[in-house]
Every structure is written in C-alpha cells, then in structure tokens.
C-alpha cells in the first residue's frame, strides 16, 4: 500500500508540474476540475495524464483501479444535477449516452462546461476524442503521439493476424456473456463482441443481431473451435472445469474438448476503443493462433 501511495503521489506531482508548465505556455484558462462519465473516456483521460484533474467519475469508470476511490456520480444515463454540482466541476466530460437531457441543461445553466465525445469504435472518432481531451489538458502534442502509437499497435495487430492466417486457418468463435445461471448470451453481428472477434482474426459463428440467449443445443450445433467468455472470474483451470461441469452443452463443444476456452475482461466490450484494447486483442489472437509467436506491446511493424 505504502509503495502505491508513493507511486500515485509521484505521478500526481509530475502531472501537476506538467500542468503548471502548460499553464504558463497557454493564456486561455483550462478546466481544472473534471467529472468524467464513461469507462473508456475516463481511462483515456488518465492515459493522457489528466488523472489529477478528475474529481468524480461515473459507475462505468472502473479502470485504472484508482478511479474507484473517487466520488461516484452514479450511472451515466441517470446523472443527478445537484450531486455533480456538489463536486464543483469546471467540466463534465462524457459520451453521447450521457443523460438525462434536462439534467445536462441544468448543469450547463450552472456554468459547467459539457463536452461530449463519441464512443463509436472508429479510429477517426478516437483521434478526434483524444485531440479534444488533449486540448482540454493543454497537451495536444502528447495526445497526438498517444494516438499515433495506438494506431500503430492496431495496424501491427492486423498485420500479425494476416501473417498468422498464412500458416493456420482462422478459427470459428463464439463470444459468450454471463455464463452463470441460465443460458449464456452470445454476441451476434453489429456488436462489439463481433468486432473484437474479427479484429483478433476469428470467425464469429453467431449470426443474430445483438446479444441473444443461446440454448445448450444451439451451442453444441454451432460447435465453435474457440469460446471466449466475457467474465473476469474465469481465471485458472479450476474455474473453467467448474464452468464445464455446470454446462454440459458447453462441455460438448470442440472448444471445451481441446481446452480452448478464453476469459476476456468484459469491460473491453463497452465504450468503444479504449487504451487496454490492443493488449486484449493481442491476447485473444494469441489464443486464436496458438502456433504463431504472440504479438508483444513493443513489436515493430515489419515493412
């Protein structure tokens, strides 16, 4: 604990020093007290060095863990005007999902700047978001370089997948949500699950729209080669064996027989392109193509 405190304290100090430097360089006053609503948005704020400015976050902001210590303003679609005003923020940063509209109007009338950024999983949208957050932090250059590095990692990811596909066939995949109790929900087309599977080089077997419950029989019928389970608790062999015992349908699939059940942090499925996404994709694709050398964070683009 002590080490962590020192670590965070040092980080805060260095960010504060950076902020002071930029404050001198720029004439326009920057917002100093931020409230952020939206998991990946808060994560990006921290990633761009704005953690010390956050005075409150919503319930979806769970990463990094230090954010959970901040006052919670509740769920991003059900914000309460007075609760947020009590934090005396200069800025409320959130996504298009933030609401309800009357509360946002009240906050604006009380002099809180409201910034909405897009959560669509598109690189141009992400670039615009990071530019905006960078401007508000007074560090557009830093934001640009973070974006460039991110874009490169996603490019390397795609390159890696096409190289791997030259040696191994793409596996068929299902991504399941909520395995505990009842039938699991499979991510179909037009979901972030589908997008993740494709980016990691898999073939999504679910052809329905959105997330729908899948019966055991349908699961056996589809017989995926790999099953991704969006649940943080699914770590270690024991948890997997217990899961298979509860779900005979799941145990009968090729994925289970060949030990290809993969746990995935479910927060990667919400909020668009987050900073932890490249690592998550690399881990997924390493499991999809076990015979290829896994992609590491510092791998270089091969020409």
């Amino acid at each position: 604990m002590g080490f962590m405190n020192i670590g965070i304290g040092g980080f805060v100090l260095s960010v504060a020093a950076g902020v002071m430097f930029w404050g001198i360089a720029q004439a326009e006053p920057l917002p100093q007290r931020w409230v952020s609503a939206g998991g990946s948005i808060s994560e990006w704020v921290v990633e761009l060095g704005g953690e010390s400015k956050l005075v409150g976050v919503d319930t979806t902001s769970q990463h990094p863990a230090a954010l959970r210590e901040l006052p919670s303003i509740g769920y991003q679609r059900q914000l309460a005007a007075e609760g947020i005003l009590a934090l005396k923020p200069d800025l409320l940063l959130g996504s298009d999902e933030m609401g309800p509209p009357p509360v946002l109007a009240q906050l604006q009338a009380a002099g809180v700047d409201i910034e909405r950024v897009s959560v669509s999983p598109q690189l141009p949208a992400l670039q615009a978001n990071l530019q905006r957050i960078g401007q508000l932090l007074g560090d557009t250059k830093g934001a640009q370089s973070v974006f460039d590095a991110y874009q490169q990692r996603l490019q390397r990811q795609q390159q890696w997948v096409s190289q791997a596909q030259a040696h191994e066939a793409a596996p068929t995949v299902l991504l399941l949500l909520g395995h505990s109790g009842g039938s699991p929900m499979a991510g179909g087309v037009d979901t972030s699950a589908d997008w993740l599977i494709k980016q990691a080089g898999g073939i999504n077997l679910a052809s329905h729209q959105g997330y729908k419950a899948l019966s055991s029989e349908a699961l056996v019928g589809l017989d995926p080669q790999v099953i991704v389970i969006a649940d943080r608790s699914l770590e270690g062999e024991q948890a997997k064996q217990a899961l298979l015992k509860q779900n005979p349908g799941l145990a009968a699939t090729r994925a289970a027989r060949h030990g290809r059940l993969i746990g995935l942090d479910p927060t990667l499925l919400v909020g668009g392109l987050g900073p932890r996404l490249p690592d998550g994709l690399a881990a997924l694709s390493a499991a999809f193509y076990p015979e290829s050398q896994p992609l590491t964070a510092d791998a270089k683009l091969t020409p």
């Binding site: 006052p71 919670s72 059900q78 609760g83 009590a86």
Partner: peptide, 11 residues
C-alpha cells in the same frame, strides 16, 4: 434518495 449516496442518487 439524493443525500444517502451523494453525489450519486438512489432511485
């Protein structure tokens, strides 16, 4: 409802 969990709010 508005004081117990402030700044969040209970339905």
């Amino acid at each position: 409802a508005r004081l117990v969990l402030a700044p969040a709010e209970l339905p």
